[in-house]
Nucleic acid binder design. Structure first.
Lengths: 118, 118
DNA sequence: TCCTTTAGTTACTAATCGGAACCTACTTTT
DNA sequence: AAAAGTAGGTTCCGATTAGTAACTAAAGGA
């Protein structure tokens, strides 16, 4: 359990939103959510292949964190070699909708800034 | 410039949302936005007083970052001792509205979880 | 003269993050 | 029969990063 830098040092977050924000930010997290939402269920190796540069360790960490947050399902099949698939939970889907709203803002601002610079 | 762990190592974020997420997460950031949106313009010392446990360095960092992201206005008056006030920009206000949506989700989930546990 | 106030810096230390290498339990290749 | 490969991770360790504590400036007040 490494990725829990959350609200450990300071308990200023009476609001659960802060911990939710912590959960979904970080290098690869929103990318994982986006992949799972746009491509459905994916296996560990498939995810890794779609994220060039990520290490197994980091991908595992992120997925475990998202699973712990109830945003991602982990489906483990103890075959040999084992098969593990990930998919979004209903909450994950809900969250993705809100993130899309954020994305709209980000894109608009980006467009505005680019326009101004041009 | 300390809080810029952003997408330095990996440039996987073609999407501006990721950097926006990085900007607004982190220990105190959303709390600052909330204070400024609910209480209007505040001076550095006032902010610090309302955030028990934060250090000057961290508060400065966060404010500078938010200013750099165009979410917060910094109004410096070179009196002795100097007076510095902070307030939300229009973008900061827009963002806060979206964050409220996220907050609604977070609160609902929190409520659901509490209910289940009870 | 010394202390207080405001808004930060600097210096230092503690924590965290991520990459490289390793692992399991079986299957396929040589 | 031995070696290599596969899937999905762990473990170890170094480098970065974040945060706390102490210091600063410049004027006014006791």
């Amino acid at each position: 359990m490494a990725t829990q830098k959350l609200n450990k040092t300071h308990a200023h977050s009476a609001c659960p939103m802060d911990s939710l924000l912590q959960t979904i930010s970080g290098p690869w997290t929103s990318y994982i959510l986006w992949l799972l939402s746009s491509q459905g269920t994916l296996r560990f190796g498939e995810l890794k292949a779609k994220m060039p540069g990520i290490s197994s360790k980091v991908l595992t960490e992120r997925l475990r964190m998202l699973e712990g947050a109830g945003l991602v399902n982990r489906d483990y099949k103890p075959t040999i070699p084992p098969s593990v698939s990930y998919s979004l939970t209903p909450r994950g889907t809900e969250l993705k909708d809100v993130l899309d709203g954020l994305n709209v803002l980000a894109l608009r601002w980006h467009a505005e800034d680019t326009e101004v610079e041009a």
